[in-house]
Nucleic acid binder design. Structure first.
Length: 600
DNA sequence: GCCGTTTTCGGCCCGACTGTTTTCAGTCG
């Protein structure tokens, strides 16, 4: 069973316990272990084989260990079953509604035996909620809005959508032509999971710092007023002294915090998270006789400010090297920072080339020359033009003959686009049986062979593992592209033995791709980290289908950073000749080279 | 349910905001 699945069961237990009125600590203990499992990259099934190792996990005691073992063996456990006899599972859906928490959910269940979103909606429409103790007319309206919004959206969005929305909102806040209040704004900074670069984003957190002025609160109030006039707002969720929270028509919730410059570091740290990373920092602060909140790091006694202006300053006071936002997920970053073992993460400006893209030859929108010019404008030294092979008929994939013609076209285009190396590539399909979609004779003539799966995605674990292994063993395969085939929020990853695949790729000198297309982000962070631990070669490519898609590189880089990748792990940070040397050597090239050496 | 050495019992992060209260419980991040 996957870690995520066990985590989900434990989280549900925590929620049911909270509804059941358990004391805070009891349900927190389940929540904590659930969170731990979400970010753990070792498989809990493997850890469980050694009971001592299981008990060593923070927050796992005797009872929790037993629970976890029972879940792994039977798929469920007694405590949860007991709770589910008392409360229907659908009560957990109600917890997702804005403004409904465990207390009110329990009250609705006990009073009306209502346990579904539709049921709550009906009560609200009939005006039955406003009379209840602790509810009122306003609550009833809010619940109605929440049920409508729940029906519309799943609550999470792709990284690029969140970034675009955040940029638009930030530009609005800073626009002095729209509001005089903008003049008082010094900076608008996205925090939260957006800053950490998670592949999906729940809501957008923006921190607004104010210029030092005569009347701070007046400035803050004016900015808040301006924010509430943002054209995309569907509903105002909160409007306080220094916080505004709105729901946009696009489904995003945006939380804006306005703060003084001297608190910026502490606030940025706090609102960037992750939650568990923050908890660890707070604990560390307490151990050192300080307390950390969103305003500053202060002494426990007397509340004297120790640090707060910048994140760097706070980490330093806590005896830690600076931790990049992408690493703040409690997967070993605190230990690394303590022992000066932080990786020097790869940066966007380190990338020298893009190795997967499509042209009008298959399903792209731009010509070879247009892609070349656009890449050159970005400062790249080389790109590989990798159109589809014939198996992908819907994308107008190329057969052997067309591939050979395409190679010629790329060579010819090179003449017209100097200053950047145009590599003749292919995204060749990995067929159901693991063989490649084009003949070795044709593959031998390409500069870069990228292989990937676009069909029979439902193969069982064994068959899919064998299929990918087959592709890796083909001596012409140099890069496996979007290796798991998942689509963010839309399609699960293929089922195969990732460790086996990575080991085989490493052994054969095959690189794996981190596909930067925001719908893919594949490999994802945890898998990239597994690849790094094996010392594998990794490429970051955009899979661009037109020239504007080149900008997706940053999402690939941020995902790579979340996988702890450094420049040296990513081979398209190398200059052209070194990059080509890092690719798996072609059999024909090796043979002809050997033959040459012999004759010489 | 877990954890710890200034605790084996008593606390679990904590501050902002809302709405329903008439001083605060519940929700949220």
């Amino acid at each position: 069973m996957e870690n995520k699945e066990v985590a989900r069961i434990l989280r549900e237990t925590a929620q049911l316990l909270e509804i059941d009125g358990a004391i805070i600590g009891r349900y927190r203990s389940y929540e904590k272990v659930a969170e731990l499992l979400y970010s753990l990259h070792e498989r809990i099934e493997d850890i469980c084989k050694d009971p001592k190792k299981l008990r060593e996990l923070p927050g796992v005691g005797e009872n929790m260990a037993e629970h976890i073992c029972e879940i792994l063996q039977t798929g469920d456990y007694k405590l949860r079953q007991k709770l589910l006899k008392k409360y229907p599972a659908s009560l957990l859906e109600l917890l997702r509604l804005q403004s409904l928490g465990p207390k009110k959910v329990l009250f609705l269940w006990e009073t009306f035996q209502v346990s579904t979103i539709e049921g709550v909606e009906k009560l609200a429409r009939e005006g039955k909620l406003r009379e209840l103790p602790g509810f009122g007319e306003k609550s009833e309206q809010n619940i109605l809005k929440a049920t409508e919004s729940a029906k519309r959206s799943t609550g999470r969005f792709k990284l690029n959508a969140a970034e675009d929305e955040a940029d638009k909102f930030a530009a609005y806040i800073k626009n002095t032509e729209l509001s005089k209040s903008a003049a008082a704004v010094e900076s608008v900074t996205p925090a939260g999971s957006l800053r950490r670069g998670r592949e999906t984003i729940g809501d957008i957190d923006l921190l607004v710092t104010m210029r030092p002025g005569r009347d701070k609160q007046k400035d803050v109030d004016a900015v808040a007023e301006h924010i509430l006039k943002y054209p995309g707002i569907d509903q105002t969720l909160a409007h306080g002294e220094n916080k505004v929270s709105v729901l946009l028509g696009s489904g995003f919730q945006v939380d804006v915090r306005m703060l003084a410059k001297e608190n910026f570091g502490a606030a940025l740290l706090y609102f960037t998270g992750s939650k568990s990373h923050n908890v660890a920092l707070r604990g560390r602060a307490l151990d050192m006789g300080w307390t950390l909140n969103e305003y500053a790091l202060t002494t426990l006694k007397g509340g004297k400010v120790v640090a707060g202006k910048s994140e760097e300053e706070i980490y330093a006071k806590l005896g830690l090297d600076y931790i990049e936002p992408e690493l703040r997920e409690m997967t070993g970053e605190i230990e690394a920072a303590e022992n000066h073992k932080m990786p020097k993460l790869v940066r966007l400006q380190d990338i020298r080339g893009d190795l997967q893209m499509h042209t009008t030859a298959s399903d792209g929108r731009n010509s070879i020359e247009e892609m070349g010019e656009a890449a050159k404008a970005l400062g790249y030294e080389y790109i590989a033009l990798t159109d589809h092979s014939k198996a992908v008929t819907v994308a107008n994939g190329m057969d052997e003959k067309r591939t050979l013609a395409q190679i010629k076209k790329i060579r010819a285009a090179q003449e017209r686009v100097p200053g950047i190396r145009l590599l003749a590539g292919i995204e060749v399909d990995i067929l159901k049986n693991g063989s490649l979609d084009l003949s070795n004779e044709v593959l031998a003539q390409l500069d870069v062979v990228v292989a990937s799966v676009h069909s029979y995605m439902q193969l069982d674990r064994e068959a899919m593992t064998d299929r990918i292994l087959g592709a890796i063993e083909n001596p012409y395969t140099q890069i496996i592209a979007h290796p798991t085939g998942r689509l963010v929020l839309r399609r699960d990853a293929f089922d195969y033995d990732m460790e086996k695949i990575l080991d085989a790729a490493k052994k054969n000198g095959v690189a794996v791709e981190c596909n930067a297309y925001p719908d893919r982000l594949d490999l994802k962070d945890v898998h990239l980290r597994m690849a790094k631990q094996r010392g594998m070669k990794i490429v970051i490519s955009t899979d661009a289908h037109n020239t504007t898609h080149f900008r997706f590189m940053k999402y690939g880089v941020i995902t790579a950073r979340r996988g702890w990748l450094e420049k040296k792990d990513v081979i398209n940070t190398l200059p052209l000749d070194q990059f080509l040397a890092a690719l798996r050597p072609k059999p024909t090239a090796a043979v002809s080279k050997a033959a040459k050496t012999k004759s010489a």
